[in-house]
Simulated assay, not measured.
Amino acid sequence: DVRAALTSADAVHGFGTDIAATLAWAVGVARPRSVAATGELLASVAVRDVAAARVLEPHLDALGILDEAAAAGPALDIDRDGAWGVFAAEGPGMRLEARQDAGTWRLHGTKPWCSLAAHLTHALVTAWVDDERRQLFALDLRDPAVTARSGPWHARGLERVVSAPIDVDGAVAVPVGEPGWYLRRPGFAHGGVGVAACWWGGAVPLRSALARAARDDRADQLSRVHLGRVDTALWAARAVLVETATVFDTGSSASAGLRAARARTVVADAVETALTEAAHALGPLPLVADEAHARRVADLQVYVRQHHAERDLAKIGGDVAAGVGGW
């Protein structure tokens, strides 16, 4: 229930800044059963605090992946309790490999971009099997064979949501889904839209700040132009998120990846517009004198970089040129 989750969030001291307290709250949140409800929850949390949404989103995503795997194949012998993450990124000079020995899978190597690994209890991680990065595994991060690095992490945005490598030296892991299943499953596109909902919710308070400025007795026509530009951008992005979630909740998987990429691009552009217009309209004062506003801007600037900008546009263009996903 979204309302119950938000009510409990309001009772958390240090929501979004105290990672342990925020994670404890996230573990107690009931996972919504639809894409639309998940997006509503994530956006509403991001309105309150961007970092809190960044904490909640991968935990819910991991639980959703486990549900998908259980529905698609044999039962998994995995303890779902605790705080979960999803580590699926790759990086130069780093490689996590999975090797099977007498029926037991073990992981060896280094995995980059493991957000909050030092705070989580479990994660779903992708690993290389032979020469293919094709298998998803459940990993207990409390295993002594897993070491979470503290950096490098010099971020000013999402400062406490440390995303650093983990080193794994033979930790036991449980396969989740068939080889290649992680990227093929319908929920992969759904999860990408959940991240976009966080971006959108994080930008909504910037619209509120612009509206307050436009109501000031000293406001001029330009202040209303800035507000209008942000209002229409976020309104359009919300419409796209709602429409995308509605389609996904019908069970349609046709061109799901392209649909999700389009939605993420629309939302990312709207967030970039909100950041730029807020900076032009409000000037430096809230960035140096308003702690909540300054932290929100910094958090959003880091978070929205999960969108790959022109590279994602090139992928969309390639799909459209190939005749995928007509209107």
Rank of each mutant, 00 (worst) to 15 (best):
Ala98His: 00
Val271Thr: 02
Gly251Leu: 03
His293Asn: 05
Gly317Asn: 15
Arg185Ala: 05
Pro179Trp: 02
Ser255Arg: 02
Leu63Phe: 02
His307Leu: 09
Gly170Ser: 10
Val176Gly: 01
His154Trp: 11
Trp128Gly: 07
Arg262Leu: 12
His108Lys: 11
Gly91Val: 06
Gly228Val: 07
Arg215Glu: 14
Asp231Pro: 07
His122Ile: 08
Asp216Arg: 13
Gln135Leu: 05
Ala75Phe: 03
Asp18Tyr: 07
Ala4Trp: 10
Ala260Pro: 06
Phe137Glu: 02
Ala322Trp: 05
Val320Pro: 01
Pro74Gly: 15
Asp140Asn: 15
Val266Arg: 04
Glu291Gln: 13
Cys198Thr: 09
Gly170Thr: 09
Ala127Phe: 02
Ala20Gln: 12
Asp131Trp: 12
Arg31Asp: 08
Gly251Asn: 07
His108Ser: 11
Ala213Met: 11
Ala71Val: 07
Met94Lys: 12
Ala9Gly: 10
Asp299Phe: 12
Ala189Thr: 07
Arg296Lys: 08
Ala261Glu: 06
Asp312Trp: 13
Thr232Gly: 10
Ala53Pro: 01
Pro286Ser: 09
Arg99Leu: 14
Leu282Met: 09
Pro58Asp: 06
Asp1Phe: 14
Ala21Leu: 08
Arg295Cys: 07
Gly251Cys: 07
Ala69Ser: 12
Ala88Asn: 09
Pro165Asn: 09
Asp67Cys: 04
Arg106Glu: 07
His119Met: 13
Ala51Glu: 02
Ala21Asn: 10
Leu285Val: 14
Ala75Met: 04
Leu313Pro: 01
His190Asp: 14
Ser115Met: 06
